[in-house]
Design a protein around this nucleic acid. Structure first.
Lengths: 191, 191
DNA sequence: GTCTATAGGTGGATAGAC
DNA sequence: GTCTATCCACCTATAGAC
């Protein structure tokens, strides 16, 4: 009852989903393969028929979650809130979604580029290459939706990623909100 | 030959110095007490007469390194480079020093607020309180040296801390430089 | 492909001698 | 205060049954 190729693909998806959530919450070192597999309703032994190592899982999960979150936040869906100012609707939605309390809470996972920045800086080249690729992808998308200079796009990305990362480290809810708001207006002023 | 109070203080300093460098490079989990003590020319057994746990060492080292780096980067010394634009000299120096290749290389340690952001978000309340305190201290200093609105000070801090953190995660030297430069000009434009 | 069991290694924290 | 020796918990990766 478990041999079809579709079943393997489903297992893989469950592992990736569990992994990206756990990695975002606890980082690389504090996330065990046991925990990931348990969250995916399997046991440790099954892991190695899907991924060859924990590091490979890390990069795969990073890409999987990064692309998915971005696709969601850019909003291919219909229900757009009313446009503010002169910014294109999709960018507004992206910034609001990204720099939100819900995102930094990590309840539904979180963007690996923000949740794992320093975690990734400590890993080896393949992991950092993966992060670089993801960031360049984000850079491309951001350049499409907002017609500004490249340095300003970079500033906006730093305020999004950095804003979320710092807000998550901070303990004080008021300062968290202040940080998120400051980054939102900082980006708006760049448009 | 090892019992004077000054000697204990010196040992403690050696431990803190080694710890902040190692924590910055490898993070909390991947830094062992063995390694810290070896770098401080002692063995593991001696550690617990200075700190009660690894977590306590982490907060002490974070504060120690954060304050020291900031004091250095704000530059209480005499050799200031010529002033650019209208910004106060000390802020220029701070930004140039902070958003430099030398800093992100981590050769001489690095600012724990940038090198350990997501590491800290994964730890418990005492650690996050320590980070929050440090950030508020930095916020105060930044408000003194640059006369701008609080949201803009926050944006500048995010571009400094976030810029360094992201540049460190990225693999591509050109993109690293682009990020650092974009953050520098972003801050200049805020003054 | 998934399971149980285990190998093999690491590292935080403590005990006790000096 | 610093050392050596040890306890104990945890975790990656593999072996082998089903």
């Amino acid at each position: 009852m478990a041999w079809s190729p579709e079943h393997k693909q489903q297992s893989r998806e469950r592992i990736l989903k569990a992994a990206s959530r756990l990695f975002a919450a606890r980082g690389f070192e504090q996330t065990g393969i046991d925990q990931v597999m348990a969250a995916a309703d399997m046991t440790r032994g099954a892991f190695y028929s899907h991924f060859k190592s924990k590091a490979e899982l890390y990069t795969e999960a990073m890409t999987w979650a990064g692309i998915r979150r971005f696709r969601y936040a850019l909003g291919a869906d219909s229900a757009d809130q009313p446009t503010v100012d002169s910014a294109p609707p999709s960018l507004n939605r992206l910034v609001e979604t990204y720099l939100s309390e819900e995102h930094i809470s990590g309840q539904h996972g979180g963007c690996p580029m923000a949740f794992l920045v320093t975690d990734i800086a400590q890993r080896d080249e393949p992991v950092r290459s993966c992060y670089t690729r993801l960031l360049k992808g984000m850079l491309g998308k951001m350049s499409e939706v907002a017609q500004v200079d490249r340095p300003q796009v970079l500033q906006n990305m730093v305020m999004m990623i950095g804003g979320v990362a710092i807000a998550r480290a901070v303990n004080d809810p008021e300062l968290q909100q202040e940080l998120l708001n400051a980054c939102k207006t900082g980006i708006q002023d760049n448009l």
